[in-house]
Design a protein around this nucleic acid. Structure first.
Length: 823
RNA sequence: GCGGUUGUGGCGGAAUCGGCAGACGCGCACGGUUGAGGGCCGUGUCCGAAAGGGUAAGGGUUCAAGUCCCUUCAACCGCACCA
């Protein structure tokens, strides 16, 4: 160990040491409790950014900490390496996506290594590798064979810039999640996964996820969007057609004054054909179709509609009400048709006011403030049923069940549940993704490729045109094949899979990453799964985390995943900001991890990131703060360098000899206690580090004293190095070695604290009068309430303060405080 | 509009169960070391001369509130015509 803290030499030395000895390699060990720690794997864009560094620093501290606590920690890393940027780079720079991607992976892998993260690299996966996507295709075929993958023609979200379709989850504010281009509609035949079959379980099992942030659970709950209600049949007068609507408010059936069909509803054309309404309807539809989703849903959304010349018959009272089409009714939710109750639904109210339609109240709020027959807005709260025949007088909430019973009895409708969640559109018209292993045969229809023929390899003879068709269609070798079922002519599906499929199961593959016989050994999955701690950005709250739960549940159902849920605990780390906003090239406020590592070293970078803010919160980047962290490491380094010779011969058993010893021992043990609690239960690394800083300050005080207790000092310094090691492993290894240890500290135990050392003889207590602090004094610790009070009352200042006052009440909190209430 | 989160010194943040608000760090000031600068070591640093006041604003509960309850405001995030 040199006198000066030379982080470059030290970090290279120890990274090499760890790698050569395969320190971080993990295997099943039935003797030990397992701990599966996972950070979201990155897309190999080329360079790590600060968000990655934060994510992986948090993970690495936890991995190292749990290892020191005796857990068998699985800590893998890999690459979410299919995706659009590789293909765009191919078009732009004429580099094959494959080369572009693998170059980026090796660049980023070496960056991760330069940060000293404790990954078991033997388990590395890359989703673009045939060894991985082979099993992706295998899973797809399992979905297909279980009736959960299907192809259907539908108007789909289309990004004109990415030239591909998008899942609902990938449309954000009517724009493409990736490139922010407004999303349009296109009628295409596409593959879907039936995630809706799992809607109820995905919702229900959120209850099992006690270790997830509430925020994420609420977001998923809202996204799944369960509504309970009834489907009700309305006859269309003068036809044999039935208009089926979904409502969550069957209690308001008597208040229906009009009906609405979604403009795209098949009945609309049928009912208006060859009538005076046909022309207006066509104009209306035409206008709607030229609006993008963005325009249709954004802004003031003026409600607009059109009467189509037909009437529906209310099944409750046989009243005829007009049927409209309107822009606010969606085809792809419920039945694509609604009953409108203006008195008790705000949207219907606005529409009714605009078009002069009757407003009939059926729920009475019994509130003199509200004029029921002259409403200013819809009344949506609870009340008493009126104008509703035999249901009058009931509470409307209780009436809902009565209405449904009535409808079911008369065969006019039934109890129904609806979800906002839609099936997952997974086809992409792009090259750099997993080929969908399906073959179309004129006589057999869609047939999956035989398992023994997997993987269906991505062809290399393709042209990157970015024209809207999948580049796979340009391959001569790929498209034509034989039908696996009848042996006749077959054509391959040329679309590839949404890359979110690849990342929906990678955590399972890590348990047996190199297996080419099966997707993984079930016994290995049994040992390691579920992931005990998952760490990543909150931006994945819906997309990735919902898809991964869905995949895991499906794999559980077919016997491959051992648990219902994949991730027991989830930590969503906050963003890294600079000058109050997210680092981005366009804002020019990007701080490059490489530069920081170069200037201060990986240990400083890690320390600063963990010290500046608790993991869930946003982190404001501060160059001065980085300097501070660097200064602290230098301070620790000098301390150890200075003391190492002095304590070389000392023993690990120490005795407390004087008050200074006692003080050091107190600070040491309370630091261990605080750090242990902060790391293991709260993940508040910032306060754990600040506790360690307090210990360092105390050691500086102590070492300047005379008659040092070398045994105690040695013990303290060792504990300091061990506690700091999960945060800044390189410098700690170096100091550990300098203190005379031969083995890496990676397998050392986390220090234990001594409860007895935390008891102080005298404690400073606070004396309050009427809740205000008036005096601080020292008393013997551990006194009973009476003894404690007696001591307080002996205090001279208290006596003076209480003179001439009447004591009303005394609240003693021994070892802490007393509050005396006086008049 | 609905749902959620957050508001504490000049700054990042701490206060974990309702019990001393501001730990720790940054910045700043001063002192020591040094020929000087840097570095390092140390002291001080919420406001106020003091009594006292102070955790977005206002109210409430309590012996005691940054913490619990109500109202308002601001910022951020998610969803957004889902019947």
């Amino acid at each position: 160990m040199q006198q000066k803290y030379d982080f470059k030499t030290i970090e290279e030395k120890w990274q090499k040491y760890w790698e050569e000895r395969k320190i971080f390699k993990t295997d099943i060990d039935q003797e030990k409790e397992k701990f599966y720690l996972l950070e979201m794997f990155p897309y190999p864009s080329g360079k790590l950014h600060m968000g990655h560094v934060r994510n992986y620093s948090i993970g690495d501290v936890m991995a190292r900490y749990y290892t020191m606590r005796g857990k068998n920690v699985l800590h893998p890393m890999g690459w979410d390496s299919f995706g659009l940027p590789a293909e765009n780079a191919a078009i732009k720079n004429n580099i094959h996506p494959n080369k572009w991607t693998w170059d980026n992976i090796s660049e980023m892998r070496s960056q991760l290594k330069s940060l000293g993260f404790s990954y078991d690299w033997d388990r590395e996966v890359a989703t673009c590798h045939p060894d991985y996507y082979k099993w992706m295709q295998w899973i797809f075929i399992q979905f297909f064979n279980n009736g959960l993958a299907y192809k259907k023609q539908n108007p789909v979200n289309w990004c004109p810039s990415c030239n591909t379709v998008l899942a609902n989850e990938q449309v954000v504010d009517g724009q493409c999640e990736r490139c922010s281009t407004p999303v349009g509609k296109k009628d295409l035949e596409q593959w879907y996964l039936k995630i809706t079959d799992y809607a109820e379980r995905l919702l229900d099992d959120l209850k099992l996820l006690e270790g997830w942030p509430n925020k994420v659970k609420i977001m998923q709950e809202n996204w799944i969007g369960k509504s309970i209600g009834a489907n009700v049949d309305f006859k269309i007068a003068g036809t044999d057609r039935i208009m089926e609507v979904f409502t969550t408010r069957p209690d308001t059936l008597f208040g229906v004054t009009y009906m609405v069909l979604a403009p795209e509803h098949p009945y609309v054309k049928e009912l208006t054909r060859d009538t005076e309404f046909e022309k207006d309807v066509d104009t209306f539809l035409d206008k709607l179709q030229h609006l993008s989703d963005l325009d249709r849903t954004s802004g003031k959304y003026d409600k607009e509609g059109l009467f189509i010349g037909h009437y529906a018959i209310n099944p409750m009272n046989s009243k005829e009400v007009p049927i409209y089409i309107a822009n606010y009714v969606l085809m792809d939710y419920g039945t694509g048709a609604i009953m409108a109750v203006p008195a008790h639904d705000q949207r219907d109210f606005e529409f009714a006011v605009k078009y002069g339609i009757d407003i009939i109240p059926v729920v009475d709020p019994e509130d003199p403030e509200i004029d029921l027959y002259n409403l200013k807005e819809a009344f949506v709260a609870e009340g008493k049923m009126i104008n509703s025949g035999e249901f009058n007088g009931l509470n409307n909430i209780e009436a809902i069940d009565k209405f449904i019973e009535y409808l079911e009895e008369k065969n006019l409708g039934k109890r129904t549940v609806n979800y906002k969640l839609r099936d997952w559109l997974i086809s992409r018209q792009r090259y750099w993704g997993t080929p969908i292993p399906m073959i179309f045969c004129e006589s057999c229809g869609w047939v999956p490729e035989k398992i023994e023929n997997l993987p269906v390899l991505l062809p290399t003879d393709v042209v990157f045109t970015a024209k809207g068709d999948s580049p796979l269609t340009t391959s001569k070798s790929f498209k034509y094949t034989i039908c696996p079922k009848c042996g006749g002519k077959g054509t391959r599906e040329t679309d590839t899979m949404d890359t979110f499929l690849d990342s929906s199961w990678y955590y399972l593959r890590y348990v047996d990453a190199k297996n080419d016989e099966e997707i993984w050994d079930k016994l290995k999955a049994e040992y390691w799964m579920p992931v005990d701690q998952y760490i990543g950005g909150v931006e994945h709250a819906i997309l990735h985390l919902l898809y991964a739960r869905f995949f895991n549940k499906f794999l559980f159902d077919i016997g491959y995943a051992p648990s219902q849920e994949p991730f027991t605990n989830l930590l969503t780390q906050g963003m890294v900001l600079k000058d109050g906003s997210k680092m981005s090239k366009s804002k020019g406020n990007v701080v490059s991890p490489e530069d920081i590592i170069d200037k201060y070293g990986a240990d400083t970078a890690r320390l600063f990131i963990l010290f500046a803010s608790p993991p869930e919160k946003e982190l404001e980047w501060s160059d001065a703060g980085v300097e501070g962290s660097f200064r602290f490491l230098n301070r620790v380094y000098r301390l150890v360098y200075e003391l190492a010779d002095l304590i070389k011969g000392a023993s690990d058993n120490y005795e407390i000899k004087n008050t200074d010893d006692k003080e050091l021992s107190y600070v040491l043990n309370s630091t261990i206690k605080k750090a242990t609690e902060d790391m293991g239960t709260r993940f508040n690394f910032n306060t754990a580090i600040s506790a360690i800083m307090v210990l360092v300050n105390e050691l500086y005080r102590y070492k300047s004293l005379e008659n040092l207790n070398l045994n105690l000092l040695k013990h303290s310094v060792k504990c300091l190095v061990l506690m700091l090691s999960p945060f800044t492993p390189h410098i700690c290894e170096e100091m550990w070695q300098h203190l005379g240890n031969e083995q890496s500290l990676y397998f050392e135990n986390w220090p234990k604290y001594d409860e007895d050392a935390l008891v102080r003889d005298e404690i400073e207590i606070v004396i309050q009068i009427n809740g205000k602090v008036k005096e601080k004094t020292y008393v013997t610790s551990g006194l009973s309430k009476d003894e404690f009070l007696e001591k307080v009352m002996e205090n001279e200042k208290v006596k003076v303060l209480l003179e001439g006052k009447e004591i009303i009440k005394i609240i003693p909190v021994p070892d802490k405080l007393v509050n005396i209430v006086v008049k």
